[in-house]
Design a protein around this nucleic acid. Structure first.
Length: 458
RNA sequence: GUGGUUGUAGCUCAGUUGGUUAGAGCGCCUGAUUGUGGUUCAGGAGGUCGUCGGUUCGAGACCGAUCUUCCACCCCA
């Protein structure tokens, strides 16, 4: 015997029930995407390394799964490079392909590559797995699904408004209440950085600011100081740390801080536009919240930044994120095409729904009716009936072996099949079917039409 | 990538300062019941204690490595 088989760290098998639940989420998201006018595309699970490397920052490069070249990939390596043992230098020589890290960069590549076939603005959605060589934790896997919807080729802020509605639509359809859609704007962040004299340290500044609710004001200030942001600038941030209140109150404070920054003011205007529109349109269950500390996400966001927080009752990281990126396709040579999009983290949404018990009971149903097998003659007779049941949309099957009754009944019970149909010699003779309701235990003998009606009725 | 944590039957877990043949509940299989599952009763199967190595007369327990789980960083869905 070989050793016990296993799967790689951070990956999972899914049993039928789990797949049913995942499909429930997929289908809900997919339906919402389509009613909002998005069209699906798919891209390869692996791309050329050039396409991915360098797009997610240094940290991102580390987390990209590289695919080893085929053949004698070491034989062709220059001796000096090989003997240096420098992984960063050697990697591109032995790996020219990599698993996709997200869906946005492959989409940007797709847009550039197919720019002449695409009718802009192009609204696409994409539901596919992505891979990250991260250390797994709860809600953090090395293989997981992203469900992305993006629009390219339109600067309009109405897109942002629609994406907020899309989030609201999906989470309402999933009956997941208490979701918070946090919004911020990169222009505000870079405006603040400019005002405090850290214009060249935008990333360090935002990364530190993003940790406010986690590590506290003092630690944030400390981190900023250590990154070389002047004390005088940090003092100017004071009103930011105590920022609270409604959307409008926060906006008022921000206007004071950003009075001297044209870009910052522009960011505020964008936020106000979006908030005003959402207020006029209304949201079903989600809440839109301004969060100036929201800076997470990819470095390429240029305007709006979104992040969706699960209800506070469940300890889970963000279950979605997105934003506006004015120059995404620029890295692939196509200038002046603006994009904006959002992503749903399927695997985390699953965990949230599971912990709140929000999956409908019906998702895991297998078949409606199982025919007990009494022997070849009865089986053939049953299959004729099964053909009719299936034609009328009933999920029906025959137990394949004429095993003991107890075994067959037990099988139906364990699979939670609601109806069992018994056709023995007597029934065959009378052209009738004995229908047993496995929940109530009730039994009745019916002809085929009555049988179909009875099952369909339930 | 850094630091910590976890692993015993299919599942959830006991297992004393290192000491005979490693236990329980649930689940599973068989029978009571050859055309009736879920309840009940009787019986049964199932573990090289994550893996490899070390210490010891003796290791599930101690030490090391490795894999895995979860957690905190980093980062992120």
């Amino acid at each position: 015997m070989a050793q016990k088989p296993s799967i790689p760290k951070g990956t999972r098998d899914f049993n039928p029930e789990q797949v049913a639940k995942r499909h429930y989420i997929f289908n809900t998201i997919k339906q919402a995407f389509e009613t909002f006018g998005f069209q699906p595309i798919e891209t390869p699970s692996f791309e050329n390394s050039d396409t991915l490397m360098g797009k997610y920052g240094e940290e991102g490069d580390r987390l990209i799964f590289k695919i080893l070249n085929s053949g004698d990939f070491l034989g062709k390596i220059d001796e000096t490079i090989y003997s240096e043992k420098n992984s960063t230098k050697l990697t591109p020589k032995i790996s020219e392909k990599a698993l996709r890290y997200d869906l946005t960069v492959p989409f940007a590549r797709y847009v550039v590559q197919h720019q002449n076939e695409i009718e802009f603005p192009f609204k696409r959605y994409q539901i596919q797995p992505v891979w990250r060589a991260d250390r797994p934790q709860k809600g953090r896997f090395r293989e997981f699904y992203q469900c992305d919807a993006d629009v390219v080729g339109s600067d309009s802020l109405w897109q942002e408004v629609e994406f907020i509605q899309l989030y609201d639509t999906v989470f309402s359809a999933l009956k997941l209440e208490g979701v918070t859609i946090k919004i911020n704007n990169r222009k505000i962040l870079s405006g603040i950085a400019e005002v405090i004299g850290a214009g060249d340290k935008l990333i360090d500044f935002t990364v530190a600011l993003d940790k406010l609710d986690k590590i506290g004001e003092e630690n944030v200030k400390e981190e900023m100081l250590s990154k070389g942001i002047p004390q005088g600038g940090i003092d100017k941030l004071q009103p930011l740390f105590s920022l609270s209140g409604t959307f409008n109150e926060q906006v008022k404070t921000l206007k004071n801080i950003l009075a001297s920054s044209g870009e910052g003011i522009k960011g505020i205007e964008e936020l106000v536009f979006i908030d005003t529109a959402i207020n006029a349109l209304g949201l079903e269950t989600a809440v839109l919240e301004l969060d100036v500390t929201l800076a997470r996400g990819l470095n390429y966001y240029t305007g709006a930044i979104f992040e969706v927080a699960a209800p506070i009752t469940v300890a889970m990281g963000s279950i979605g994120g997105g934003g506006r990126y004015d120059d995404l396709t620029g890295i692939f040579g196509l200038k002046n095409v603006s994009g904006v999009g959002i992503s749903f983290g399927l695997d985390r949404i699953y965990l949230v729904l599971e912990s709140l018990g929000l999956f409908p009971e019906t998702v895991a149903k297998s078949v409606d009716a199982l025919f007990i097998n009494f022997g070849d003659a009865e089986a053939l007779f049953s299959l004729k009936a099964i053909k009719q049941l299936r034609a009328s949309g009933i999920h029906a099957e025959l137990y394949p072996d004429s095993a003991k009754m107890k075994k067959q009944m037990n099988h139906a019970n364990k699979r939670q099949i609601p109806f069992v149909i018994l056709v023995g010699a007597e029934e065959m003779q009378a052209n009738k079917f004995t229908l047993k309701n496995m929940v109530s235990g009730e039994q009745s003998t019916l002809d085929l039409d009555a049988l179909i009606n009875q099952i369909k009725k339930s």
